[in-house]
Simulated scan of single mutants.
Amino acid sequence: MRLRKTDVVDEALRFLDAEGLDQLTMRKLGAALNVQGGALYRHFPNKEALLDAVADRIVEGIGDPLPDAPWLDQLRILGGRLRGALLGRRDGARVVAGTFAPGANTIIGSDVAVQVLCRAGLPPAQAGWISFALFYYVLGHAIEEQAQSRLPPEQDWRIRTERLDVQVSPQYAAALDALAGTDPAERFAFGLDLFLEGLRHLRTTLPPQPA
């Protein structure tokens, strides 16, 4: 059977879930597909191009139609969709963070966010900046979540800090305990709500935009 581009991406995702990003090479992927490494280069000129396609597949669906809801709730849904997509694949956040050229699914998701913001009365230029900031908050949080989830118990934040033998204030120690002892989903929701509350305040200070 002729090897298709989508077959390569599918197998790359399976390999990613099984072995992780650091183990993914064109040679290993070719072996998993039972083809010579050169066969992959007919579809992807290099590993970077492959990872661009993998990243775009990871975020597939984030731009699906949103429910009829207030604009801040729609942005909250978008943020949750993106986080879920990134955490749904091993090292998914690192893969997406390592790509620069946006794929179709990335563009669709960004377009949905910009439309939500523009319907709320923000100008397109500012909507672009805001959607960029929102997506990178989600991306950064997901990277931290996935990195933290791989740490063995003896390497958690508290223990690593104690081993550094750095004198910290009681306030910092309490803050670190609160961070380390909280469900990552709860921390994410708190940060997203903080972002959206600031955005709500920003919108109220802008002059009305023409329809």
Rank of each mutant, 00 (worst) to 15 (best):
A39K: 05
E154R: 05
A85N: 06
D193W: 00
I77Q: 05
G88I: 04
I130N: 02
P208I: 06
N34C: 10
G198H: 12
K47L: 01
G103E: 04
L151K: 05
L21M: 13
E154W: 02
H201R: 14
L40I: 14
G191E: 06
L179G: 12
P123E: 10
N46D: 13
P102A: 11
M1P: 09
I159K: 11
Y136N: 14
R89E: 00
P210K: 08
P67S: 03
I108A: 12
M1G: 13
P170S: 11
V95I: 03
Q148R: 15
P45D: 05
Q148Y: 13
R158S: 12
G98V: 06
E48F: 09
P208L: 04
A133S: 15
A18F: 01
G98A: 01
P65R: 12
A173S: 15
A113K: 03
W71N: 00
I159H: 06
A173W: 14
V35G: 00
W157D: 11
A174Q: 15
P45K: 12
R203W: 02
A69D: 07
P70F: 07
P153L: 05
A53K: 09
V95Y: 02
L13S: 09
R203E: 03
P45Q: 14
R119N: 11
G88P: 02
P208Q: 13
P102W: 10
A127L: 03
Q115N: 07
K28E: 14
V35K: 10
T6D: 15
L192V: 08
L82C: 07
L176A: 03
R57H: 06
V96F: 05
L202M: 09
H141C: 07
H201D: 15
R94A: 12
V96Q: 08
L117H: 04
I77R: 02
